[in-house]
């Protein structure tokens, strides 16, 4: 299962790779990373059929996670991409917007990786 993680913090890559090292090692999951909304769009245009789940931060300079969500939902209707939004600000407005734009789930930072793993497992099954 291909998962694209979008966050402007580069260390997110190392963190995910270590947190999911067993899943990666077993080939259960595979991660790619983009460090901005724009980068994510470029990546999706190249690999869009491979990616099943997008985990995106909302607060990024430039294209925000919510904008990315809008673009993804518009540009890549088929196959339907699962999008999970992650934000440092767990405010209702962002949640409402994310859901209205068609996000599948909404998480607040700091991310509890045990919960995230569960959610991913659910989404896959």
């Amino acid at each position: 299962m291909q998962i694209l993680v979008v966050d402007d913090e580069t260390d997110v890559r190392d963190l995910f790779q270590q947190r999911f090292r067993r899943e990666i090692r077993s080939g259960e999951m595979s991660f790619s990373f983009a460090f901005s909304g724009e980068e994510a769009m470029t990546y999706l245009r190249d690999h869009h059929s491979e990616v099943l789940i997008i985990l995106s931060d909302i607060n990024m300079p430039g294209m925000s996670g919510l904008e990315l969500l809008g673009h993804v939902k518009k540009e890549f209707e088929m196959p339907p991409t699962t999008m999970v939004m992650i934000t440092a600000y767990g405010d209702d407005e962002s949640y409402r917007q994310a859901m209205a734009l068609g996000a599948n789930d909404f998480l607040t930072k700091p991310v509890d990786f045990a919960v995230l793993k569960e959610k991913l497992a659910q989404l896959i099954s």
Binding site: E9, Q18, N59, K109, P110, V111
Partner: peptide, 21 residues
Amino acid sequence: AHEIQNPLNFVNNFADVSVEM
């Protein structure tokens, strides 16, 4: 607060994952 929250999350996560490892 936001700027501190991010590095703190990393500190916590990397410490946590290191214990796991």
